[in-house]
């Protein structure tokens, strides 16, 4: 009940935040040098052609009028038309967002679980060889550029070992997967398409692995630091002094207390990953949200840039809401 009320309040608070984001992006993208109309016209286009194109996309109107139109569209779910492709932004984004979200959600989930297990393992062996090895490995993984790591993985796991399908696309077209959400794995489950599921999962292995290696280090460090703090705390030592067995200590007195700080950091990592999957998408020909947003920005495709920024902001808002609720569930002292 309390959580429902908290969620409702936070969602209401998100409305002005998103509105602010819309205003700022709307203005910024128009202030930036560059003209979207010039990019779609040929080199021989006349000034009259440009004016006609401008009128077609409503760019000849005064800025406030454009904004009011855009805002009106936003409330009816119309995000405008891409200047580059002439397609509906909503339709393009629906195809693009699913695959990227799937990639990021799976990668962050695996990284969080891995960070929890390894972080606690590492903290319990603090100062020993295993702890040092793990921390160095995590740091190395964190320091590798995604695109390079992705290429190396393709070279070794696909070309060398042949364990995974080729890094071209997200699912084998022969499996006839029908598109529902855009997230292929989810669509395969929803349609009960076994072969498509296997194919999509196979294609996910390398990009997910790349992202996990890159983002697991900060999460693990956080868990390890919290776990060390708990291990040194009076409360934990008191439980140990009362002779409780290792398993009880680990499950009841260490794990939950050590995870208290993880949700906030995981949310940050998640939000960061949404906007920065573009390199991984390029390497694995993922055709995802990151690539689409980047291309929109490069060609000053106003509706695309606006839509992608709003979606990223929305993702941040939602994921931090989830993180706060999880934090409150983990730590009974937090009141939401």
């Amino acid at each position: 009940m309390r959580i429902a009320r908290f969620t409702a309040r936070r969602l209401l608070q998100a409305v002005p935040v998103l509105l602010g984001v819309v205003v700022v992006t709307f203005v910024l993208v128009r202030v930036l040098p560059g003209d979207p109309i010039r990019t779609i016209l040929g080199p021989n286009a006349t000034e009259a052609d440009a004016a006609a194109a401008r009128a077609r996309y409503g760019l000849d109107q005064p800025m406030w009028q454009q904004f009011v139109d855009y805002l009106g569209g936003l409330f009816t779910g119309d995000l405008g038309v891409s200047i580059q492709s002439g397609q509906s932004v909503m339709g393009e984004m629906a195809v693009r967002l699913g695959p990227t979200l799937e990639l990021v959600v799976i990668a962050v989930t695996i990284a969080t679980v891995l960070a929890t297990v390894l972080g606690i393992w590492s903290a319990r062996r603090a100062g020993r060889a295993g702890d040092h090895t793990l921390r160095v490995l995590a740091l190395v993984g964190n320091s590798l550029p995604e695109f390079w790591l992705g290429l190396v993985l393709i070279l070794v796991v696909y070309s060398g070992l042949g364990w995974v399908p080729a890094p071209s696309g997200r699912v084998d077209p022969d499996t006839n997967l029908s598109l529902i959400t855009g997230a292929d794995l989810l669509d395969a489950v929803l349609t009960g398409n076994g072969p498509a599921f296997a194919s999509a999962a196979g294609h996910l292995v390398l990009p997910v692995a790349t992202m996990v290696v890159v983002i697991v280090a900060p999460l693990m460090r956080s868990v390890r630091a919290s776990a060390l703090e708990v291990l040194g705390s009076e409360a934990y030592r008191a439980a140990a002094a009362h002779g409780l067995p290792e398993r009880t200590l680990l499950r009841g007195y260490l794990a939950r207390a050590a995870l208290v700080r993880l949700p906030a950091l995981a949310a940050l990592v998640f939000g960061f990953a949404i906007g920065s999957t573009v390199l991984v998408e390029y390497v694995f020909s993922w055709q995802g949200f990151g690539q689409w947003a980047l291309r929109g920005l490069l060609f000053r495709d106003y509706p695309v840039v606006q839509a992608s920024v709003v979606v990223i902001a929305l993702c941040y808002t939602l994921i931090f809401l989830i993180a706060d609720v999880v934090h409150a569930v983990l730590d009974p002292r937090v009141r939401i």
């Binding site: 705390s233 009076e234 409360a235 934990y236 008191a238 439980a239 140990a240 002094a241 009362h242 002779g243 409780l244 009880t248 009841g252 007195y253 939950r256 207390a257 208290v260 983990l330 730590d331 009974p332 002292r333």
Partner: peptide, 29 residues
């Protein structure tokens, strides 16, 4: 530890695990 000699710690607030309900802490023992 515990069965032979058990310490009742100074500063009970600090010595009780903050993330476990007190009943569970007792049943663990």
């Amino acid at each position: 530890r515990g069965a032979g000699a058990a310490i009742c710690f100074q500063n009970p607030r600090g010595a009780l695990s903050p993330t476990r309900v007190i009943g569970r802490q007792l049943t663990d023992r």
